[in-house]
Amino acid sequence: MPSLKPGSRFTSSVCTTQVIVVKGAGEVDLRCGGAPMLAAGAAADGGLPAEGASGGTLMGKRYVDPDETVEVLCTKPGDGSLGIGDALLDLKEAKPLPASD
C-alpha cells in the first residue's frame, strides 16, 4: 500500500494519470481506475480503468476524500478515477484566493 506524505507523487497503473499529494500521511490504499497507484516513475501495468472508476481525472484539479484527510493534485490527466479503496475521491471545488504576485 502506498505511503503518503505531502509532496510525494504517484502514477496510475492503468492510465496516464499522475498525482502529487497535497495533504495526507501514512499508508493509504490510493487507487486510480480501481487499481493501486504506483510510486512515480514506475511503468504502467497496462489494462484499463475498472467500470465505476473510469470517469477520468482533470489536469490541475484537486481530489479529496469526504473527511478531507487526503488531498491530491492531478499533474497529468487520464481516463481513470481516483479513489481510496473502492470509494471514489471527490473533485474539490476551489475557493480562489486573489492573485498576490
Partner: peptide
C-alpha cells in the same frame, strides 16, 4: 522545491487565469 511548490499549490489555482490576463 517543497517550500515553493507548497506556496504555489496552496495559493494559486492551476490555469486559474483567463487567456486574456497579463501580469
Amino acid at each position: 522545491h517543497r517550500h515553493l511548490v507548497s506556496y504555489v499549490l496552496g495559493s494559486v489555482e492551476f490555469m486559474g487565469a483567463h487567456e486574456d490576463e497579463a501580469a
